[in-house]
């Protein structure tokens, strides 16, 4: 079985889609031949497809997305890269008011086949302007779809779907995932949106986790297995659309749920997931819903501070044990 990194899986998806469809092009800061993307996802693509289709831009996030929107509504399929998730804030008008609303506002006349790739998350000590997890911002805007791929396999399959999809998609990556390796088949495949993945089966408690937290949850599950606690880890894979069925089914089975996300707690991804479970599976719960998230603070720089605010395996285990 072939194992490749998350970074390489993304690049394969981009490359294959660019070969398949000449309307696909990439746009972003330092994604071209001189740098290959801050996290090297697009490395080599400018050399292969040329600078026209792998476009380096000025540092102008709002215009990057605006230009991508303009191209998308006139027949192209742009994949824009925003170098760091926090910097989507600079492009928020184009994302939330333009890309998200154009189709609806104009009575369904237009489609906006746009993908915005961006890395969220902490863990590399680059402080408050480069480390936040903002997936919930995009979930809150009708018209946007939100992908959270946690493995190389999911990353490739979901990115291909995102590119072929006719809606604006915010494709959330995580800095710590790029070097992670995993199985990715040689042959063509895609993963549909709205289909969660049970990353580990279990019977005592459900952990719903996203992005890098999936891996921390799996590590916690492994540790707890040795103590005889059976943890099921469910990865929604896309937050919009959300696979409510798989999540609630797992909760109905185990009767207990811990939600683990790296964004902060208040009005976060975990709040939406908890509300869903409360609405649709409350009668099956044997214990209160637990949430393990980053504390409600900007991400601090110094390692002891950053390590404290972002959930770790210990906090996940503690939360599980509180309801077992």
């Amino acid at each position: 079985m072939r194992e490749i990194s998350y970074r390489d899986a993304l690049r394969e998806a981009l490359r294959e889609e660019m070969i398949r469809d000449p309307t696909v092009f990439l746009i972003g800061e330092d994604i071209g031949r001189y740098w290959g993307g801050a996290f090297k996802v697009t490395k080599g693509l400018a050399e292969e497809f040329g600078d026209e289709r792998v476009r380096d831009t000025p540092i102008s996030e709002n215009a990057i997305i605006g230009v991508a929107v303009g191209a998308a509504i006139t027949g192209m399929r742009p994949v824009a890269e925003i170098m760091f998730g926090d910097l989507t804030a600079l492009a928020m008008d184009q994302i939330a008011n333009q890309a998200a609303k154009i189709r609806y506002m104009f009575g369904g006349q237009a489609k906006v086949p746009l993908v915005i790739r961006t890395p969220f998350g902490g863990g590399v000590n680059i402080a408050a302007h480069h480390s936040q997890s903002l997936e919930a911002w995009f979930m809150h805007v009708p018209g946007l779809q939100v992908v959270v791929a946690s493995t190389p396999y999911d990353a490739k399959g979901l990115l291909k779907t995102a590119i072929r999809n006719d809606n604006p998609v915010v494709f959330c990556e995580h800095k710590l995932l790029y070097p992670l390796t995993g199985h990715v088949p040689e042959e063509e495949y895609t993963i549909p949106f709205g289909v969660a993945d049970v990353k580990r089966e279990g019977t005592d408690v459900t952990v719903v986790a996203t992005l890098y937290m999936v891996h921390k949850a799996l590590a916690a599950a492994e540790t707890l297995a040795k103590e005889g606690i059976s943890v099921e880890v469910v990865d929604p894979r896309t937050l919009v659309p959300l696979d409510k069925e798989t999540i609630t089914e797992s909760v109905r089975k185990t009767g207990r749920v811990v939600i683990v996300t790296e964004d902060c707690k208040t009005a976060g991804v975990s709040a939406e997931l908890a509300a869903l479970i409360a609405e649709e599976a409350l009668d099956y719960l044997d214990a209160p819903i637990k949430r393990v998230t980053t504390f409600d603070v900007p991400i601090p720089f110094s390692p002891p501070l950053e390590n404290f605010v972002i959930p770790d395996e210990k906090r996940i285990i503690k939360a599980i044990k509180e309801i077992i």
């Binding site: 000590n125 408050a128 720089f301």
Partner: peptide, 10 residues
């Protein structure tokens, strides 16, 4: 200066 919250960039 920032009690370790900012680092080199802040």
């Amino acid at each position: 200066y920032c009690k370790g919250k900012g680092g080199s960039m802040h």
